[in-house]
Amino acid sequence: MIRTDRLKWIAFLAPALIVYGVFLVYPVVQSAMLSFSSWAGPGRPALPVGFGNFAELFQDPVFWLSMRNTAALLFVSVFLQLPLGLGLALIVTSARRGRRIWRGIYFLPTLMSTVAVAILWRFIYSPSYGILNGFLRAIGLESLTQGWLGQPSTALWAVIGANVWQWAPFYMIIYIAAILGLDQELYEAASIDGATRGQQFRFVTLPLLVPVLVTTSILSLAGAIKAFDLVYIMTGGGPTHSTELLATYMFLQGFTNYRLGYASAIAMVIFTITLVLTVIVLLRSNRRPRAKVR
């Protein structure tokens, strides 16, 4: 009886495990092996170099710049994008009418493909034709017009802004679902106890949302560290590496410089950072509710 159960269990899991193994585990392992070699692409020999790639990487100023840029994106994603998503969710859920319409409107950016978002924002930031500079000119602030994506001082923040615009609504939808799923009796009880709306949010909504906040934090962390497409299309990592992220730098080294071993070393760094951060978030969040229960 137990044996057939286990066979069924394996039979049902096998397809997913095979796909996961072939398309995720195997490439990760292969990347890890490759990161200790120097390889210029198919048809060329892969030469073992030990820790050479990593030694070079940690002295590579562009690598550290892309680390810094990725950290900035990560910080904004977690501490600006998530609160913004939560704020939007609170606004939409507290709307007395037209909740669906507002939700739909706010959700639009996330529904667009990243390529479209990137091109849209390239147009917005365009120095000659863009609406941002056009708006500044119209209100007499001509002196503030910039080549937003063309100079290192503004390019990174311009790209991060577009990223927030695209992804905050995604988190909004998750938060809306979570908020609507909360037990209304708790709010009734809170208001009978004389809690203001602010106190209700602070002592009822927020604690109940912790599991969702953890999930979205992980999504947002991993998303920021692996971020590639939007930046690649908007700036290609430029000008002069000023918007280079870990992932775009990996692509540059791998597919422009054909240093696939070196690129794999960067991939390993990305993988390690994501893994460590995710584990930390998971461990911390698992502890907290239990402490509450006791």
Partner: peptide
């Protein structure tokens, strides 16, 4: 990018 961004830049 999708291929590369998952850290799977293997052969």
């Amino acid at each position: 990018a999708a291929v590369a961004a998952c850290g799977t830049s293997g052969p």
